[in-house]
Simulated scan of single mutants.
Amino acid sequence: MSQETKRKMYYILAILYRAMKGEVLSVQGLANEHQVTTRTITRYINELKNWLADHRELVGNTELIYNGQIQGYQLKFDSFLLNEELMVLIKILIGTRALKREDLVALISKLKQLTTYNERPLVEQLIKKELHRYIPVEHIEQDVMDRVWQLTHLIHGRKEVTITYYKANREKVNRTIRPVAILFAEYYFYLVGYWVDKDGETDYVPILYRVDRIVDVVIHRRTFELTRETNFDEGNLRNKVQFMHAGKPQKIKFEYTGDSLQAILDRIPTAVVLSLEGNKAVIEAEIFGNGIKHYLLGQGRRVKALAPVCFVEDMKSEIKEMLLSYEEKR
């Protein structure tokens, strides 16, 4: 390869690199930077434009386009985030409070590289205050992103593992499980797994473990298979689990007399309105575990449990204990 060819490749790659960063490319600016003529830069830009057009099967709908308003070239391709898309993603990330500040800032910085260069100062200005006052939720295990990725590989490889885990009361326990999914909800990532007893058996009832409370993972040689009946459906569980309290499935029925029926239906994806008279709705829903109880109790007198009997009695018992705690303080 001749020196001239190497030089040309260097200039073209330099131009492409700057363009992929979202920068506006000025012919005069590039010429001054590389100490060549504007004619040389224009020739290299044209060669790059022709190469992009000839290799659409590799680069997709990618073009280097001159923008007369800003007097420079910009790279346009399908993978660029629209500014409104970027803002929505950043707002969601900040709202989750699930990442350490440094991880969040690094992730947002990478996302900004996928949007137009001239809009990045505006994005910085819009999120500056939120990032300054960002407070993540407290985690026991700090490297949540690394742990999520490790568990994802174990799920894919169907590896049985023993985790060292801190329960809500800070008791440290060891659990041998068959990991089957990762979910995110209510500020935390959760590992879904089937508990394995000392004989190596499981009842295939999904149990949820907060990923940030997993402080160690021992990987076993033993792998497992899931049948059609026991294969895990993350979407189905997400719709039926409230506040990430897993357990056995059940169908509940309750009466709602509030003015925010749609909020109830949005919060419980499996909810179905059986009847509606005025502001009184009878709702049925398929759920896992008893996490739904905490949400419905928060609705106060606007909710009345109807079925099954065990659900009704559980709600009654909780209300009685709440009332008792107030009476004891008198």
Rank of each mutant, 00 (worst) to 15 (best):
L265F: 10
Y134D: 02
T37I: 06
N67Q: 09
D314G: 13
I264Q: 03
I90R: 02
K198L: 06
K6Y: 15
N279H: 08
V88P: 01
N174V: 01
T223S: 13
I264F: 05
T270N: 01
M315A: 04
I319S: 08
L52V: 11
Y73N: 01
K159M: 13
D143L: 07
D197S: 05
V218E: 08
S26E: 07
R221K: 09
V303G: 00
H34Y: 03
E160C: 05
K253D: 00
Q250N: 13
E130I: 08
Q69C: 05
S109Q: 07
V148C: 15
V123E: 01
L111T: 04
S260F: 07
M145V: 14
V273K: 11
V312S: 08
K110P: 03
P121T: 10
M145D: 02
L114E: 08
N83E: 13
G22H: 11
Q28C: 05
N239T: 10
E328R: 11
Y204Q: 01
G193P: 08
T202Y: 00
I163T: 03
I214F: 13
Y117E: 08
R120K: 06
L89T: 05
Y194V: 02
A271K: 01
I94S: 05
I70A: 05
N239K: 15
H156V: 14
L58D: 12
L25S: 02
E33T: 12
Y326E: 10
V282Y: 04
V205W: 10
R133A: 11
Y295E: 04
G157L: 14
Y44R: 09
R222K: 12
G157D: 15
V180T: 11
K100N: 13
R238F: 09
E318M: 05
R301H: 05
L82D: 13
V312W: 03
E225D: 10
R18S: 12
D212E: 14
W195R: 09
V148H: 06
G298S: 03
K240P: 00
F311C: 06
V59F: 09
G258V: 06
L107E: 12
V205F: 09
R210K: 13
R39F: 01
R267A: 09
E318H: 05
A305R: 02
V303K: 00
Q150K: 12
R147Y: 02
H153Y: 15
